[in-house]
């Protein structure tokens, strides 16, 4: 399916490297964007394109934290909760988010819309509390901004969210 949909971009990507295996992390980003998480199918497709063993791809999925081994919500909210952010209220922010979404950290809302996670430093310590949602940064957050963000995302989802994702936008540059 990746091949059918992104044939041109994949070829351009592979042409960058002397070894196909180098494209694996990019392709995993693309596959996850397509399938939501590193499903068996996603892993098999990536392995085929790179001509490597699927167990290698599985190992990478476990090693790199941006890949999800289990299904997640449509929007994954990853709050940076490292020391620098915690000094500026990230722990209280996580608590608030968890209460409002009515899910624990690592939980997914019943409607499958949101997953809440805490992550290590995202490199935006001067704008804490902050989070990353499907690779987009939302910074200088507070409760009101969080409510707003959640409402906007719900609305977008209802309207069938057809905005290109961050991964799709980056892949549009593969030529």
């Amino acid at each position: 399916m990746l091949r059918e949909k992104y044939g041109k971009e994949i070829d351009a990507l592979l042409a960058r490297f002397p070894e196909k295996k180098s494209a694996v992390l990019h392709l995993m980003h693309l596959a996850q964007n397509e399938y939501g998480h590193m499903s068996d199918e996603a892993i098999r497709e990536v392995a085929e394109i790179c001509e490597i063993d699927p167990t290698h791809v599985l190992g990478l999925a476990g090693f790199y934290t941006l890949y999800y081994e289990e299904p997640v919500g449509k929007y994954v909210l990853e709050v940076c909760n490292d020391l620098a952010c915690a000094l500026r209220g990230s722990e209280e922010f996580v608590e608030m988010a968890s209460r409002k979404l009515d899910i624990p950290v690592d939980g997914t809302t019943n409607d499958g819309m949101f997953t809440l996670k805490t992550v290590m430093c995202l490199g935006a310590c001067d704008r804490a509390p902050m989070l990353q949602c499907n690779l987009k940064f939302y910074e200088n957050l507070d409760e009101a901004k969080f409510d707003n963000m959640i409402a906007m995302l719900r609305m977008k989802a209802e309207q069938g969210d057809d905005e290109p994702s961050v991964v799709e936008r980056i892949f549009s540059y593969m030529k």
Partner: peptide, 18 residues
């Protein structure tokens, strides 16, 4: 051939670089 290795979390920021 130069590669700029960026953390995946910078993908959105990297747009300017691309």
């Amino acid at each position: 051939k130069v590669f700029n290795y960026m953390r995946g979390e910078f993908m959105d920021a990297a747009y300017a670089f691309e």
